[in-house]
Every structure is written in structure tokens, then in C-alpha cells.
Computed example of a mutant assay.
Amino acid sequence: MRAIAFTVAATLLTGTAIAQTAPVPAPAEPKVFVSVEESSALVSSLKGLDVRNSGDESVGEIEDFVIAGNGFDSYILSVGGLLGMGKHYVAVSPSALAVTWNASDKKWNARINATKEQLKAAPQFKYEGRFAK
């Protein structure tokens, strides 16, 4: 019985010793330089872009972009208003806005499945606090 206990203890201690001496891989270095995909868009190309709905009605325009952490979080759309007065801003999910490049007329297009009334009724985004312009 003592021999079995000694064998079990020796096996456990050997296993622990092996686990403690196993090399730990070094953390991967973060990328510094990256390639820009042909399908990508520059923010400067999309700011001010007219947003249309499925009825081809203009329902707003891309006003801004929200970055959260290291990722793109939302588009800020301006809706309504005339000559800068009475604008209503709303934040929409990137998945709600289809942004595409039309190679034939060399222009960006933005589509959303919402009416102007739905966008005006959406919760308002305000440029205040840390988001003040």
C-alpha cells in the first residue's frame, strides 16, 4: 500500500514539475502597419454623404462617426433641418446602413431601411459633454 502511495505521489510531483517548467509563449506583438483593403472607405469620403431609403428618398446625411475602443461603433446621421437650423442627430448601427461604391459613376452611396419620420422619432444624439464640437 505504501508503494502505491509513493508511486502516486511521485507521479503527481513529476507532473507538477513538468507543468511548471513548460515554456510560456511570448505575447504576440501588435501590428503597427497594415494594408488597406480595396473595399474599404475613408471617413473623409463618407462625411456629408446623402443617405437614401428604399424609396430613393433622401432621409439624411452622414454627419459623423463613433469609434468605441478599437472599433467602429456607429454613424451619426443628421436628419431634417433647413440651412443648419432644426437638425436632429441620430446614432445608427453600422449594420443598419448599407454603404457601397458605385464604380460606374465613381460615387459612394448610403442606404437605410427607414423613413425620414422614423429617423426624426429616433432617440436624439447630442453634441455635448465630451462629444461637443
Rank of each mutant, 00 (worst) to 15 (best):
V92S: 07
T115K: 04
E61A: 13
A91F: 08
F65Y: 08
Y75P: 10
K126A: 15
N102A: 13
F65N: 05
G71T: 09
V99L: 08
I62Q: 07
S95V: 12
A68T: 12
Q118S: 15
K120G: 04
T14R: 00
E63Q: 06
E117G: 10
T11N: 08
P30M: 00
A103D: 13
L97A: 10
F131M: 03
D73C: 01
R130A: 12
A68Y: 10
K87Q: 14
S39M: 01
P27S: 06
I67N: 04
A121C: 10
G81P: 04
P25K: 03
N109G: 04
Y75A: 08
K107C: 02
G55A: 13
S35M: 11
P123E: 14
A10Y: 01
D64W: 10
K116G: 10
L13H: 05
G86M: 13
G60D: 07
S74N: 14
W101K: 01
L46D: 04
E37Y: 08
V90S: 12
R2D: 11
A132V: 12
S40V: 11
Y127E: 07
A22S: 10
S44R: 12
S40I: 08
N53E: 02
L42G: 00
K120C: 00
S40P: 00
G81H: 10
A17W: 01
G69W: 12
K106C: 05
R2K: 11
S45C: 06
G15W: 01
G84W: 01
G71C: 07
A103E: 13
D50E: 12
T100H: 02
S45L: 06
G69M: 01
L49A: 02
Q124I: 11
A41I: 00
A114Q: 12
W101I: 05
D64R: 02
T14H: 12
L49Y: 05
I67R: 13
W108Q: 07
A5S: 11
S93Q: 04
K120W: 06
F125D: 06
L97P: 07
V92F: 07
N109D: 11
E57H: 05
I67C: 00
G55H: 11
D50T: 14
N113C: 09
A41H: 10
V90L: 13
